[in-house]
Nucleic acid binder design. Sequence first.
DNA 1: CTGAAAGCGCTAACAC
DNA 2: GTGTTAGCGCTTTCAG
Lengths: 337, 337
Amino acid sequence: MPRATIDDVAGLAGVSIKTVSRVVNNEPNVRQSTREKVLGAVRALNYRPSAPARSLAGDRSYLLGLLYDNPSANYITDVQYGVLASCREQGYDLLIHPCDCQQAGICEEITGLVGHSNMDGVLLTPPLSDSRIIVDALERAQIPFVSIAALQTGRRAAGVVTDDRRAAFSMTEHLLSLGHSRIGFICGHPQHRAMAQRLEGYRDALQAAGLAVADSLVVQGYNSFESGQAGARRLLQRKKPPSAIFAGNDDMAAGAVMVAHQMGIRMPAELSIAGFDDIPLARQIWPTLTTVQQPIKAMAQAATQLLIGILRAAPRTDIEAVIPSRLIVRESTAVAG
Amino acid sequence: MPRATIDDVAGLAGVSIKTVSRVVNNEPNVRQSTREKVLGAVRALNYRPSAPARSLAGDRSYLLGLLYDNPSANYITDVQYGVLASCREQGYDLLIHPCDCQQAGICEEITGLVGHSNMDGVLLTPPLSDSRIIVDALERAQIPFVSIAALQTGRRAAGVVTDDRRAAFSMTEHLLSLGHSRIGFICGHPQHRAMAQRLEGYRDALQAAGLAVADSLVVQGYNSFESGQAGARRLLQRKKPPSAIFAGNDDMAAGAVMVAHQMGIRMPAELSIAGFDDIPLARQIWPTLTTVQQPIKAMAQAATQLLIGILRAAPRTDIEAVIPSRLIVRESTAVAG
DNA sequence: CTGAAAGCGCTAACAC
DNA sequence: GTGTTAGCGCTTTCAG
């Protein structure tokens, strides 16, 4: 049998289609008894409004877009689950769109996509949320958006972040409390707000402990496992290698663990290693990683709520939500040897 | 500026909107010169047809759905990238929909979703593609679908698979050639076609080598890292433990590696371990895993092509494409001690 | 509180 | 080859 339309429902309920529309969209100005009659017909016919028809007639499509650029699989699936959770709750559908933020014409690609699919708004993850040109293009095209873990640009863009700096501070304290005084740090991608914050937290903690921040103990990484390997190699080949390494994320920390294995360094006896994010990998390598649990799904969910709120009501909401993360101690860190 | 409509293009090109429609949809019966004129106007106005309008007017929405149930993050992102690659090429958008295939009412959820969003067709991944009731519901609702790595049900459903059985055969041969004669096997989820095939391949190879398949060397796993740990523990606690373990996938193999570390068993000297899939984890643990590279992205891409082909032309295509996989030898396997 | 009428931007028959 | 005419199913005016 074909799908029921709004006319079928109106016919069955003995009202006009406009009234059905009002009920379905939870609009006011409908008598309670009428509302119930309509709802009954909706159920009886298993009526679901047609998304395209709605989108064409109204100005809303109930479609959100999730834009991202080559993040780790775990990160993006967590984000997706969070976004979808909010979408379902609110009756939105989600279009995903991986893209290359370096590529020429990326802005046109994005605005074109949004226009074409008639998206109501988009969600941005790093590094897209940290890209000036993309944020600018979105604003120029008047496309509502919310960013996740974005760089603080000082402009009025809504976003959700976690307390990276404080969490990195805690992790460094943890390492210090185990007696480590030479703690290496492998930075994440320089463009990511979150990564910059983590480095700050590390610095803060050393300074708070009255220690100098040695440049030779801070190396640049780029979020990947491989860059973690490279960074750890550099750190461990120093004349005075660190007794602990704190990596900006778990992938890089896992790379460091791999390098230590290869160099025959025992963990955690001779070297402590800490990560950040608590990806599944953190519990699947030996030794299991001490890390910071990032509330990725919760952030994504909150960001989506925020976006939907913006779409619904306030023309401009300058909210930045902060969701806390949590330190998790596992086998890869121990008292300095 | 507001988006250009088909009327704007028709006006600029000096033709009717129907002609514009023909050109945009690559239909025949348009003179070359007219076509070019229209294309020029399209470019000048940066015209992109409105997806919802198209969907409402025609019977096609250019929207595909990807359904999955709690797969690993790597698997599903690979699938997504593959599907999206084909979608972009063909001008389709993608809606993703994770779901719980055990849940009551899952069939109505799916058919409702498809109807609501007006999807043209859906892609199924295991275990959804192996679920009889879901496949039945899809057929009953006349929703075109293609499954990825599905159980061979004997019915006329299109799907794309890889040669799991042959690949598992090769891996077992590899282990045999290293001198292992007691090879343990950790099975994957009993409902997954691919997993059953891998077990068959293992059995085939042992038999081909004139060895008996000892029941005590085959344990049940459920695809997860944890189930791999449990399976390996059982295997390694036998009176006569195997000298090699072949796990149905990399997650389980990684679990086995972890257990061996914990039990103080040296790899690969005392124990060889092999996996299947070649997920990133396979290169991020120590020792790195010998495994089979699964062409997940290619399979997803082919499945999407197949689906789009079905949508376009043949009312019923009974195709099953097979994409080969590849053995990758790393550090976790070596000559039997 | 409720309904009638007019489109949203496009495709599908059918005419020319 | 090309144009005309109806809708697709809904939301939005604006009247009652």
